[in-house]
Amino acid sequence: MAAAAAAGAGPEMVRGQVFDVGPRYTNLSYIGEGAYGMVCSAYDNVNKVRVAIKKISPFEHQTYCQRTLREIKILLRFRHENIIGINDIIRAPTIEQMKDVYIVQDLMETDLYKLLKTQHLSNDHICYFLYQILRGLKYIHSANVLHRDLKPSNLLLNTTCDLKICDFGLARVADPDHDHTGFLTEYVATRWYRAPEIMLNSKGYTKSIDIWSVGCILAEMLSNRPIFPGKHYLDQLNHILGILGSPSQEDLNCIINLKARNYLLSLPHKNKVPWNRLFPNADSKALDLLDKMLTFNPHKRIEVEQALAHPYLEQYYDPSDEPIAEAPFKFDMELDDLPKEKLKELIFEETARFQPGYRS
């Protein structure tokens, strides 16, 4: 834990890192770190609560700039109880001085990944967590956004079992017609939660990839272990087919990539493993919904509104309290091709509203 900075004593240090967030945020305490930044909790002297502050230093890398800009653009436009918001952003007053960006968010005690390492969940908890994931996802999908990296560590939890989806750095506007060349190379989302079509096709992607990830998360809540822990690309596919069985001819016809289709045709026939054999203690309604989410063919996979209306979630289902976005989200430009200098300018502009004396 960093010592509390005395008023006016300059930035606090946390594990050798400068955290320049005073005077409003003090009493910093280390939480963890990701690929390009550290997260601390801090005391907000204005709202009198502890908050989470993520320090991001992305400006050396085009990919990190892209992810940072995506996350900020999306989260500043989203407003939903099951999606983490941005409360404040701290950065230098000029673009030349801006080396880091500090993002202030609600402090959540833990995440689903940490929880599943230590606790076996009751059916009631599984049901409530799944409902909140789908409630947040309904809003995301209504904005025409794909999260693309749903996994237990991106689901934040607090002691009252509130759940918030975080990390929109890989999110995209849904565009089933656009052929994202190089899709697989830039697709760094965790393999275990990846839909089979991501490994088999490169053309376009749809909201059904997020539903697949939610199915993987439900299976993990039922058993405290990942359902498809593939060691590499082909191993991942083999794990999936080992449980779902061989795809039907109709399902194979959806695979545009001939090499991928021929690979699947070359494999020995596998039978589907019954879900109640894998999860003998699970609620039968939970397994019915799991089956509809972990469907090989993305066109037959359940959609988020149908999933919310499934009998497993009937005690929570309330369409009048499951809000959607006001308007579909649009990125003005494809960020993939922009140089990091341009992305830095866009991050600077996007964060201006939090600067003292800002006038829109």
Rank of each mutant, 00 (worst) to 15 (best):
Lys138Tyr: 08
Ser223Met: 12
Arg353Glu: 10
Ser246Leu: 02
Pro93Thr: 15
Asn154Ala: 06
Pro268Ile: 03
Asp337Gln: 07
Gly169His: 03
Ala282Leu: 02
Val51Asn: 01
Tyr30Asn: 14
Cys65Met: 06
Val214Leu: 13
Arg91His: 12
Pro247His: 15
Lys151Ile: 02
Asp336Pro: 00
Ala282Pro: 07
Pro356His: 14
Lys99Cys: 04
Leu234Ala: 11
Gly16Val: 14
His61Lys: 02
Thr26Ile: 15
Ser29Asn: 12
Lys99Ser: 05
Gly204Lys: 11
Leu218Thr: 12
Gln66Glu: 11
Lys231Pro: 01
Ala5Ile: 04
Gln62Tyr: 07
Asp321Asn: 14
Ala171Asp: 09
Ala171Pro: 08
Ala352Gly: 04
Met293Arg: 06
Ile72Val: 07
Lys300Leu: 08
Glu220Trp: 06
Ala174Pro: 04
Leu116Pro: 10
Ile56Glu: 05
Asn82Lys: 13
Ala174Lys: 09
Pro323Val: 02
Pro280Gly: 11
Arg353His: 07
Pro58Cys: 04
Tyr30Lys: 06
Ser223Asp: 12
Asp167Thr: 05
Leu313Lys: 04
Ile140Trp: 12
Leu157Arg: 06
Asn297Gln: 11
Asp291Asn: 13
Ala352Arg: 13
Arg91Asn: 00
Phe168Ser: 11
Glu186Thr: 06
Trp192Pro: 14
Val49Ile: 04
Gly37Tyr: 12
Ser248His: 01
Arg79Gln: 10
Glu341Asp: 15
Leu252Val: 01
Leu200Glu: 12
Tyr317Gln: 00
Ile74Val: 13
Arg148Cys: 12
Thr181Trp: 11
Arg67Gly: 05
Lys138Phe: 05
Gln132Tyr: 06
Asp20His: 12
Asn144Ser: 10
Ala3Lys: 08
Ser360Met: 14
Pro274Val: 05
Cys166Gly: 02
Leu287Asn: 08
Ile347Thr: 05
Leu75Cys: 02
Ile53Asn: 14
Ser223Cys: 14
Leu157Phe: 11
Glu60Ala: 14
Lys73Ala: 13
Leu287Trp: 06
Ile53Gln: 03
Ala286Phe: 01
Thr160Met: 08
Ile95Trp: 10
Ile72Phe: 11
Phe279Gly: 01
Lys117Cys: 13
Pro152Phe: 02
His80Met: 02
Tyr25Cys: 13
Leu146His: 07
Ala286Trp: 01
Thr118Trp: 07
Ala307Gly: 04
Pro11Trp: 13
Met13Arg: 14
Lys300Pro: 05
Ser213Ile: 11
Lys342Glu: 13
Asn297Trp: 06
Gly245Ala: 06
Cys161Ala: 05
Arg70Met: 11
Asn45Arg: 07
Ala260Gln: 02
Ile103Trp: 07
Ser122Val: 04
Ala286Cys: 00
Ala6Pro: 05
Asp177Gly: 04
His269Asn: 14
Arg148Pro: 08
Arg50Met: 14
Lys151Arg: 13
Asn262Gln: 09
Cys166Ile: 11
Glu109Ala: 04
Leu264Phe: 03
Asn253Ile: 15
Asn257Gly: 10
Asn47His: 11
Met221Glu: 05
Tyr316Glu: 08
Cys254Tyr: 14
Lys48Asp: 12
Leu290Asn: 07
Trp212Gly: 13
Ser223Tyr: 15
Ala219Val: 12
Phe331Ile: 15
Pro176Thr: 15
Tyr131Glu: 05
Asp149Lys: 06
Asp100Trp: 00
Phe183Ile: 15
Asp111Gln: 04
Pro196Val: 12
Asp88Ala: 07
Met333Gly: 06
Ile56Ser: 03
Gln119Arg: 07
Thr160Cys: 13
Pro247Val: 03
Asn27Glu: 05
Glu334Thr: 00
Leu294Gly: 05
Gln62Arg: 05
Pro58Lys: 01
Leu258Tyr: 07
Gly182Glu: 13
Pro247Ala: 09
Met221Ile: 15
Tyr30His: 03
Gly34Met: 02
Ala7His: 08
Ser223Thr: 14
Asn27Ser: 09
His269Gln: 12
Ile302Lys: 04
Arg191His: 07
Tyr113Ser: 08
Asp167Lys: 01
Asp251Gly: 09
Asn45His: 05
Leu137Lys: 03
Gly136Phe: 01
Glu349Cys: 02
Asp332Thr: 05
Leu244Gly: 07
Ala35Asn: 11
Lys73Tyr: 11
Lys344Tyr: 08
Phe183Arg: 06
Asn224Pro: 01
Gln355Gly: 08
Ala92Gly: 00
Ile103Cys: 09
Gln62Asp: 11
Pro176Ser: 13
Glu71Phe: 02
Tyr193Trp: 08
Glu250Ser: 00
Ile86Trp: 08
Leu278Arg: 01
Ala35Gly: 08
Ile165Leu: 12
Asp288Ser: 02
Ser202Phe: 11
Phe78Gln: 13
Leu107Asp: 12
Phe129Gly: 05
Tyr64Asp: 09
Leu157Gly: 12
Gln236His: 13
Ile211His: 13
Asp283His: 02
Gln306Ala: 04
Ala352Pro: 02
Asp210Gln: 11
Leu218Ala: 13
Gly10Glu: 10
Lys285Gln: 13
Lys340Val: 03
Lys259Met: 15
Leu338Met: 15
Asp318Gln: 04
Lys203Phe: 08
Glu326Pro: 00
Lys151Thr: 13
Leu258Phe: 07
Lys300His: 10
Lys231Ser: 01
Pro280Val: 10
Asp321Tyr: 15
Phe279Cys: 07
Arg15Ser: 15
Asn281Met: 09
His310Val: 06
Ile324Glu: 05
Glu60Leu: 11
Arg24His: 10
Leu107Gln: 14
Leu121Gly: 07
Ala195Arg: 08
Gln62Val: 10
Lys285Pro: 08
Ile126Asn: 10
Asp283Glu: 15
Cys254Glu: 07
Asn123Met: 06
Glu197Gln: 09
Leu157Met: 12
Asn144Thr: 13
Pro93Phe: 01
Glu71Trp: 00
Gln132Gly: 09
Asp177Asn: 14
Cys166Gln: 09
Glu71Lys: 08
Pro356Arg: 04
Ile255Thr: 04
Ala92Tyr: 00
Ser284Glu: 08
Leu258Thr: 06
Arg15Tyr: 12
Pro274Asn: 05
Leu121Asn: 07
Leu258Glu: 09
Leu157Pro: 13
Phe129Ser: 11
Met98Ile: 15
Arg91Gly: 01
Gln306Glu: 05
Leu346Met: 14
Asp336Ser: 02
Lys292Asn: 14
Arg77Gln: 13
Arg148Gly: 13
Lys138Trp: 10
Ile256Cys: 13
Ala286Pro: 00
Asn257Ile: 15
Leu313Met: 15
Arg225Asp: 01
Asp175Arg: 11
Val173Glu: 15
Asp100Ala: 12
Thr63Phe: 11
Val39Ile: 05
Ala42Val: 04
Arg135Leu: 13
Pro247Ser: 07
Leu184Cys: 11
Val18Ala: 04
Leu28Ala: 08
Lys300Cys: 11
His310Pro: 06
Met98Pro: 08
Phe19Gly: 11
Arg24Met: 11
Ile255Gln: 11
Thr26Glu: 12
Asn87Ala: 03
Thr295Gln: 07
Lys164Asn: 15
Asp20Phe: 11
Val145Trp: 05
Ile198Glu: 06
Gly215Cys: 07
His269Met: 11
Glu33Asn: 00
Gly22Pro: 09
Leu112Val: 04
Asp124Arg: 06
Val101Trp: 04
Leu137Ala: 09
Tyr43Glu: 03
Ser41Gln: 07
Leu200Ala: 11
Lys48Val: 08
Gly8Ala: 07
His147Arg: 12
Ser142His: 02
Phe228Asp: 00
Leu218Glu: 11
Ala2Gly: 13
Lys99Ile: 01
His239Lys: 09
Leu267Ile: 00
Asp179Val: 15
Ser320Met: 10
Glu349His: 02
Ile53Val: 13
Ala189Leu: 12
Ile165Asn: 15
Ser142Glu: 08
Tyr43Pro: 06
Asn257Lys: 14
Ile243Tyr: 02
Met293Cys: 02
Asn224Ile: 15
Cys40Thr: 00
Leu130Asn: 08
Ile83Ala: 00
Met293Pro: 03
Cys40Asp: 00
Ser266Asn: 10
Leu237Met: 10
Asp177Arg: 10
Asn297Cys: 11
Lys207Ile: 09
Leu121Arg: 03
Ser320His: 03
Asn45Glu: 10
Leu107Glu: 10
His80Leu: 15
Val21Gln: 09
Leu218Asp: 10
Ile209Asp: 09
Gly242Gln: 08
Asp149Leu: 11
His147Lys: 09
Pro356Ala: 00
Leu69Ala: 03
Asp336Trp: 01
Lys48Thr: 12
Ala219Tyr: 12
Leu121Pro: 08
Lys344Cys: 03
Cys216Pro: 08
Glu322His: 00
Tyr30Ser: 08
Ile198Tyr: 03
Gly34Tyr: 01
Ala35Pro: 10
Tyr316Leu: 09
Pro280Ser: 14
Val49Gly: 00
Phe348Thr: 10
Gly204Cys: 10
Arg277Asp: 12
Asp111Tyr: 15
Val101Met: 15
Glu334Asp: 15
Leu222Ser: 06
Ile89Gln: 02
Ser29Pro: 04
Ala35Ser: 14
Ala6Leu: 14
Asp167Ala: 14
Asn82Arg: 13
Leu130Thr: 08
Arg24Ile: 04
Ile302Gly: 10
Asn47Lys: 15
Pro298Gln: 02
Glu350Tyr: 00
Val51Gln: 08
Leu150Trp: 05
Glu314His: 00
Arg261Ser: 12
Val46Gln: 05
Ser208Gln: 05
Lys285Asp: 04
Leu244Tyr: 03
Ile324Gly: 07
Ala2Ser: 12
Leu252Glu: 08
